[in-house]
Design a protein around this nucleic acid. Sequence first.
RNA 1: GCCAGGAUAGCUCAGCGGUAGAGCAGCUCACUCGUAAUGAGCAGGUCGUGGGUUCAAUUCCCACUUCUGGCUCCA
Length: 587
Amino acid sequence: MSDAADTGKLSREDRLYRIRHSTAHVMAEAVLREFPEAKIAIGPPIENGFYYDFDLPRSLTPDDLEKIEAHMRDIVAEKHPFEKTVISRDEARSQFSNQPYKLELLDAIPEGEEVSLYTVDSFVDLCRGPHVENTKEIHAKAFRLLNIAGAYWRGDEKRPMLQRIYGTAWESPKELRAHLDHLAEVEKRDHRKLGRELDLYSTHEEAGSGLIYWHPKGARIRLAIEEYWRKQHAAGGYEILYTPHVGKSWLWETSGHLDFYSEGMYPSMEMDNAEYYAKPMNCPFHILIYKTSMRSYRELPLRWAELGTVYRYERSGVLHGLLRVRGFTQDDAHIFCAPSQVEDEIHTVLKFSLDMLGAFGFTDIKAYLATRPEKSVGEEKDWNTAIESLRKAVEAAGLAYEVDEGGGAFYGPKIDLKLKDALGREWQMSTVQFDFNLPERFDMTFVDSDGREKRPFMVHRALLGSLERFFGVLIEHYGGAFPVWLAPVQAVVIPVAPAFDEYARTVKNALAETGIRVDADLRDSRMNAKIRDAQHQKIPYMLVVGGREEDERAVSIRMRTGDKKDGIALDEAVAFIGEKIRKREDI
RNA sequence: GCCAGGAUAGCUCAGCGGUAGAGCAGCUCACUCGUAAUGAGCAGGUCGUGGGUUCAAUUCCCACUUCUGGCUCCA
């Protein structure tokens, strides 16, 4: 038996699925050729490829990968069929008596479901399939083994650590080439690399890892982001708050963080016989402000935002550039409103989020709606109101969305927005999250129109997520070539020779007066070298000036794209760049 | 935290038992140039930290710190 059924009519996705899944099996056989005593675990197809986990007598080296790949090419060339057999559990148990991981997987197959084996050459695997019919459908030049990594059996850190081999597989060598090129592009855009090359930020292990130092150029970008953010928030009816970085244990006991989140917090510091903690979240502080006076329904909704820097303990192994850090600034806000206002508020906040992300060039956005989990707090009717308002809001926004049943936090349902960057990678940025826990814990109330005290709804939301992570994603999205309005240096004036330094200064001042971030490159080096440096720094506009320009009070504009505009009057150039900035165009 | 691999000049990397090398960047000098690198010279490193083995350690061994790729988690 094989998976012959009309393979010619399969979608590309299905064909790739079979190829990748089958290539994983071929790899497992190749590994067994090299290590006959290997214990095999699982080997599924994944996005762009596949992996297989093994328990091996020793650690793999890159040389092993080459050998395994060579075996794989042999197996593929030998044109073995993939044969499916349906067997009983007992038969399967004896078949895999030497393979403890397979036995465990076997036990996990629900009673009544068929147990199938796939055989290719000498390799038999417990597997649901489907597979290609024959290894000849795997193109010997369209797969590659990529890397070795440790992975816990079943993702559980209490279970054995296995060795995982990742590979990529495609229908044709051309597709493989394209994918490898894509990986090279990803590497080229790596924010850690660009962060150093463009002098944007650094980290200092001596001073603590996972903590970000924003250099002048990085800070210019951050300022541009924050400025836009504040302007939009003011227009959106938000008030800005500033709150402390530390709070006494009372605060975190009341909020419940010490009970449920302490492993994510920096340890305490003692002062005046009290324990202080660096804040992992801003919410308790905003609540304290809320509680400084009696709140009337007439005041609601209150929309309070803060660029609040929080500190969280992250395990050393997970830290990653700007994307995973221990200190970061959330673009946090809390909305306190009456139950009747929830729907409008959610609708508005979601639209706000899309507008904000859109301004930074992110328009491909998907929503994930997470509903009530088993263990949770709050009233059933409040959860339903909240979930309904979230659902209506995504639908009204015309967003594609998925529902993660039971995936919400214990304190409330949420919507996460994931965006796709220029390379098609998905990142989670925005989150809109209800909280039925904190209003209770802090006994928050408002006086309703009927004169009774009632509990307000509380919504946490972050649009950009954190400035650090957002910056990291932004760097990679633009590959360091920021749109003019964000570029740390928007224009650089380059004299063709030192004789024109004076005019270069004049040009620089003319731009700087209108608020354009401009430098004049007056170093003692040749114009060609200056242009090359400016290109590498991805500066949007290079204003080249020499005798011709000085005579006419003009400039020659060279864009970082290589386009050129000669003999542009200085006033016109200033207006042109100013317009690009105002319209937030790329260049 | 766990598995694996790294850590050599500001950056990118070579050297792998006899105490260090290149390119770029930096500095100095010369050159005064029209859209992606002008040339020459100089300077720069207790080879991540601490132990051990050895006549001798950047090189071999151990521990630690940290980075990278994953696992897990997440803004």
